[in-house]
């Protein structure tokens, strides 16, 4: 027995070899996020005549493990915009904290709540977020997310845009991240192929389309969940529901699926 306290509780050199102190020394290039760890899947959104509907399920996956089933991936900002996050959850939390601080900064300069949203529209918020994302990619330290921003622009027209970990940004009458780009976007484009089409959609129609898409995503995306969040952003503000359940599922189609492609037997 070694009686020196320094030795207590440590692996013995003669059994395990000398401790490798290089563990404590950070050498080599700075290690930023280089791959996402805990991830959220699709976010989908569609414009309608008075605003935008946006939805995302409540799952955070750890690889193929459904790790956290109560994760809110839609974040309201100043009751005027909703930010939907796909991709790494820790980076989402970082951005969420960052946006909260930004909201406090806005409150410092603009004490009146109704004035705040006039200055900080979804369009302005998006411009800011795009710069943050592009700046981080320029420093090889990306925030591993694809983000949708829903709300109104500076002329009070519906606004919807996307930015990803490289700072690539774009807008469209409907948008979807991740799997949703392949599965939900074609369905949404049927209802809102152009801005003019989207401007004809009612709120109810838009909500129905989004719910239908969430169902399709749950059928076909293995990293998805049947509990989801959905938000409607209009001039009146944000209406966010964070614990919705997919309704009227039918798995009857599953029986007919055999093998891949056109195989029927």
């Amino acid at each position: 027995m070694d009686h020196r306290p320094q030795a207590w509780g440590r692996p013995r050199d003669d059994v395990y070899g000398a401790y490798d102190p290089s563990y404590f020394h950070n050498s080599g290039p700075k290690t930023a996020t280089q791959s996402p760890i805990v991830t959220g899947t699709s976010v989908i959104a569609i414009k309608f005549k008075d605003g935008v509907v946006i939805a995302a399920d409540n799952l955070a996956s750890y690889g193929s493990l459904a790790r956290f089933t109560d994760v809110k991936r839609l974040r309201p900002f100043l009751n005027a915009s909703v930010v939907g996050f796909g991709g790494d959850v820790s980076d989402m939390q970082y951005l969420d904290r960052h946006l909260k601080e930004l909201a406090i900064d806005v409150a410092y300069i603009t004490p009146e709540a109704s004035e705040q949203t006039k200055d900080f529209t979804a369009a302005n918020l998006f411009t800011y977020l795009q710069k943050v994302m592009y700046h981080r990619r320029n420093h090889f330290d990306p925030l591993w997310n694809q983000i949708l921003v829903a709300g109104l622009d500076n002329d009070d027209a519906p606004f919807l845009a996307s930015v990803d970990l490289r700072g690539t940004s774009f807008t469209s009458p409907s948008l979807a991240t991740g799997f949703g780009a392949a599965l939900a976007q074609p369905i949404m484009r049927k209802y809102a192929a152009t801005e003019e089409d989207a401007a004809k959609l009612t709120r109810e129609q838009a909500v129905d389309v989004v719910k239908e898409c969430m169902k399709v995503l749950f059928y076909r995306d293995a990293r998805s969940l049947d509990r989801y969040s959905i938000a409607v952003v209009t001039k009146e503000g944000v209406e966010l529901k964070e614990d919705e359940q997919l309704e009227r599922q039918s798995w009857a189609f599953a029986e007919r699926i055999k093998g891949y492609g056109t195989q029927t037997v």
Binding site: N58, A60, D70, R73, M92, Q93, R97
Partner: peptide, 8 residues
Amino acid sequence: VDGEVGNG
């Protein structure tokens, strides 16, 4: 908690 994702 800031950045909290769920209800616990």
